[in-house]
């Protein structure tokens, strides 16, 4: 960080400088600088503006899927103080549960200009609560026992990792290692958004649904009794108990919501790309990166982080091999955390 070089002499000045450097605005500034750099790079490399805009749009779409996962990760962390490494695989399970439900239903005609029929929506409505209940069930048999024994956070994380491997192995056993598609060989309608940027209508549906779910989670947290209790538990679990909040019930709702969001995220990701048994596993690190970038445990930070990661991931593919997309996103995360270790929404300083 070049700005630090002229070392201030007095301690007070140094503190001022470090406050400015560590402020939220410095981080926002850094992200803006990166955005500017990308624009300059793209014009140097002769990447067309349309292509760049298209990538940004794709990034926002990916951000929506990441946000659904990241919301769950950050809720579980906030309420249970636990890094749930099984979250990505809950998304995978959601995607495959949707596939199972769809295979049981007769195929309908595509819905108004979209690439899928009613059966996808039904599958979504079935898979979401199922993944939520699965998440709570897993908590009952594994994490809750560890919590009651006051196990160290690292033990909880390892247990979650074990659950992740278990879930993925089951998916491998049942569905095999091959790709799967919700709709094979069906035309996927495309529309032009603006300035030559074209997206599939399915992708607009994905983003729309992601935003809808995010708004619902927001309303739940701000307006409902159980939502406020979730925030209270994230703030101060001891005081929540002292106030008489039934903490186990709050834990149930946390898993139900986090799991349902993961299920939706998995199905939407599957609709956009394809289904693979390790699809969620590969999303896990970007999910955690989003959550950490936005300050772990903070819901609104997770959203900001997810969309930032999604956009950086996609836009970087204009300059580097697409396989390095997640890596580019991580570089941004590391830079951001060097400036502001507590993340975008963190308190202090």
């Amino acid at each position: 960080m070049v700005e630090v070089r002229p070392l201030p002499r007095s301690r007070a000045l140094r503190r001022t400088v470090s406050t400015v450097l560590g402020s939220r605005w410095a981080l926002v500034g850094l992200l803006a600088l990166i955005a500017l750099l990308i624009v300059v790079l793209s014009s140097l490399q002769g990447v067309s503006a349309t292509r760049m805009l298209g990538l940004v749009v794709r990034g926002v779409l990916l951000g929506g899927v990441l946000a659904l996962g990241a919301l769950g990760v950050t809720l579980v962390f906030g309420v249970l103080k636990m890094a749930n490494f099984a979250h990505g695989d809950l998304m995978t399970v959601g995607a495959y549960l949707g596939l199972v439900v769809m295979s049981l239903l007769p195929r309908g005609a595509p819905l108004l200009g979209l690439g899928f029929g009613y059966e996808f929506v039904v599958a979504l409505l079935v898979a979401m609560p199922l993944v939520g209940l699965l998440a709570y069930g897993l908590d009952r048999v594994t994490f809750r026992r560890l919590r009651q024994r006051r196990s160290a956070p690292v033990m909880m994380a390892m247990a979650a990792l074990g659950v992740a491997f278990g879930l993925r192995s089951i998916v491998y056993m049942v569905f095999g290692a091959d790709f799967a598609f919700y709709y094979q060989g069906r035309a996927r309608p495309v529309v032009e958004l603006f300035a030559g940027v074209r997206v599939r209508t399915d992708q607009l549906f994905i983003l729309g649904l992601a935003v809808l779910l995010i708004v619902l989670v927001y309303l739940l947290l701000e307006r409902t009794k159980v939502g406020k209790a979730m925030r209270a538990m994230a703030d101060n679990p001891d005081l929540a108990r002292i106030s008489g909040i039934p903490t186990e019930r709050v834990v149930f709702w946390t898993w139900l919501i986090a799991g349902a969001l993961a299920g939706a995220g998995g199905m939407l990701y599957g609709l956009d790309v394809q289904l693979r048994p390790e699809m969620g596993w590969w999303l896990l690190l970007p999910l955690f990166a989003s959550v950490i970038l936005g300050t772990i445990g903070n819901v609104y930070g997770a959203l900001l982080g997810a969309f930032t990661m999604g956009i950086v991931w996609q836009v970087s593919t204009a300059f580097v091999n697409p396989a390095y997309g997640p890596a580019a996103a991580f570089v941004v995360m590391i830079l951001a955390l060097l400036v502001r270790p507590q993340g975008l929404m963190g308190g202090g300083r």
Binding site: K225, K228, A229, R231, A232, A234, D235, N236, D238, L239, A240, I242, S243, G244, I245, P246
Partner: peptide, 30 residues
């Protein structure tokens, strides 16, 4: 708490990210 006994700890006795009103609501959650 259901029996009519309520307690204010010495430290960490509020929910910092909740509003005053929400803090009060949490007191009567049951």
């Amino acid at each position: 708490v259901r029996r009519g006994l309520c307690y204010v700890p010495q430290v960490d006795n509020v929910f910092p990210s909740l509003t005053v009103e929400e803090n009060l609501e949490m007191g009567a959650y049951i």
